[in-house]
């Protein structure tokens, strides 16, 4: 197979161009946000939040099919003509609702974090399934797309949504970087300096929610966690400062996104599993290399 066949031929198809751009954007944004998810040990929360957006997406989706599942939310979403935007807003509402609910339930420490997360996330997921099951068309075909992504259906408007979300999320992280770093490392110091540590934590949860919803179409609910965790986990093996970790994770995410798109094209497999497999492969190779050479990058990488 020539280089042209490997790299250029796929680009001749318009849907493939959009898929590559989408995978690149999602990989980069998830890498940056995932850095915080990894260093704070919030993997379970990330997975839960991805599943919790289902009812919001479902309501927004079913509205297009005509059935109004939850009256108030449907009315709210009714004003949005554009389907992609409606799915985004619906998912975001559900995601932020779940994030705030979990945050509130664990605030007085009477309930352990993972317990509250487990209770809320499966309940939200079940609610989403219930809503989708009211519409036969959605249940039969489109549920698969929501769960596992449908990158080939990405439209220009989806790319714009990802771009704007990315700018907002990464811009917010840059603006509040030193505060977010401090509350993640040592919440006691943050509080003794009179920083609003609860507010900063909530801000981070909302940023994670935005990232998840913006990535849904590309990777789907079930595989979202890998986009958040795996690039950052790989980056953590070879960096010792947070901003380096974020940059390396974004690069790994972006390259794996593009690599996954090519892999999917050539092997004729689905895109989202291909991206995840590339991500995990990168992690595996890094992990084993570091273990085998016993070389502690941690000490020397700057």
């Amino acid at each position: 197979m020539s280089l042209q066949e490997i790299f250029l031929d796929p680009l001749s198809r318009e849907f493939m161009q959009r898929a590559i751009i989408a995978a690149l954007l999602v990989g980069a944004i998830s890498g940056v946000v995932g850095a915080f998810v990894v260093v704070r040990g919030m993997s379970f929360f990330g997975d839960a939040l991805a599943h919790s957006v289902l009812p919001g997406v479902a309501v927004a989706y079913i509205y297009g099919g005509g059935a109004a599942a939850i009256p108030i939310v449907s009315d709210l979403l009714q004003g949005i003509e554009q389907e992609s935007l409606r799915l985004f807003v619906g998912g975001l509402m559900a995601g932020i609702f779940a994030a705030l609910l979990i945050g509130w339930m664990t605030r007085d420490e009477r309930l352990k974090d993972d317990t509250a997360i487990g209770v809320i996330f499966v309940a939200m997921f079940a609610l989403g399934l219930a809503i989708i099951s009211t519409d036969e068309r959605a249940w039969g075909r489109d549920l698969l797309h929501i769960l596992f992504g449908n990158i080939l259906a990405v439209q220009d408007v989806d790319i714009y949504i990802m771009l704007i979300s990315g700018v907002v999320v990464i811009g917010t992280i840059l603006l509040f970087y030193k505060e977010l770093l401090l509350v993640s490392f040592d919440v006691a110091l943050a509080r003794s300096l009179r920083l609003p540590s609860e507010g900063l934590r909530t801000l981070l949860l909302i940023l994670i929610a935005v990232t998840i919803v913006a990535s849904l179409q590309t990777v789907g609910i079930v595989l979202m966690l890998a986009m958040l965790i795996t690039p950052a986990a790989t980056a953590q093996l070879i960096t010792k400062r947070m901003h380096h970790l974020m940059i390396v994770a974004a690069l790994i995410g972006a390259f794996s996104g593009v690599g996954g798109a090519y892999l999917a094209w050539h092997l004729q497999i689905q895109f989202s599993p291909a991206i995840v497999l590339i991500l995990t492969g990168t992690f595996g190779v890094s992990f084993i290399t570091i273990r085998l050479t016993r070389y502690k990058f941690h000490n020397n990488f700057t």
Binding site: V39, G41, K178, E179, L181, L182, S184, F185, D186, L189, A190, L193, R194, L195, Q236, T239, K240, R241, M242, H244, L245
Partner: peptide, 19 residues
């Protein structure tokens, strides 16, 4: 404190400057 956190000595000291 999570001692595996990706921060260097001077990053930690800089945190005292946040406010």
């Amino acid at each position: 404190i999570d001692w595996n956190f990706p921060v260097t000595v001077q990053d930690v000291v800089m945190m005292g400057r946040t406010r």
